[in-house]
Nucleic acid binder design. Structure first.
Length: 154
DNA sequence: GAAAAGATTACCT
DNA sequence: GGTAATCTTTTCC
């Protein structure tokens, strides 16, 4: 095994929602071989490959998921990861992690935040060509690790 | 079976 | 700010 316990963690600072009846969602046209993880139930990790990188989603409901777009250092030390592909690379997430249960924490775990979130901003999603204007992107206002320079306040 | 599009990133000007 | 890289999934004939 490479790095038996290279436990790396980030503080999620930017996500995007992909809901049902969402033209921009991979699940818009129903289940396929690629998006099957999105129908596996809440807490499932949906990892897909785009160009030459991978992006990770956390399934919320059947056919709906949240794209993990960026993460910052947990406290002081640590690596920040700006962008979905960079985030996956920083956490060591590969296509093989697709379909895992992130709540069970086999290899990847998503945990609730313990501290209070300062302020959450809302705005349009990034990098899509359909439903561009829908305000389904959420990020921590003012956080330096957020990918897009555009900063609307909630 | 072949062609086009894509929830990105890196490097060019 | 715009374009190329790169490769898997999806869609059409």
């Amino acid at each position: 095994m490479r790095g038996p316990d290279a436990t790396r963690s980030v503080r999620l600072v930017e996500v995007e929602a992909y809901l049902a009846n969402d033209p921009a969602s991979h699940a818009f046209r129903g289940p396929t071989a690629r998006n099957r993880s999105m129908y596996r139930g809440p807490g499932t990790l949906y990892v897909f490959r785009i160009h030459q990188v991978v992006c990770a989603n956390l399934v919320t409901r059947r056919g709906e998921a949240v794209l993990l777009r960026a993460g910052g250092p947990p406290a002081t030390e640590g690596a920040s990861a700006t962008g979905p592909g960079r985030l996956c690379r920083a956490l060591g997430i590969t296509i093989d992690d697709d379909g895992q249960d992130a709540a069970r924490g086999t290899r990847i775990s998503v945990l609730p935040r313990r501290e209070r979130v300062p302020r959450i901003a809302v705005g349009p999603r990034v990098g899509i060509s359909r439903a561009v204007e829908r305000p389904l992107r959420f990020w921590i206002a003012g956080d330096p690790s957020v990918s897009s320079p555009r900063r609307l306040t909630a």
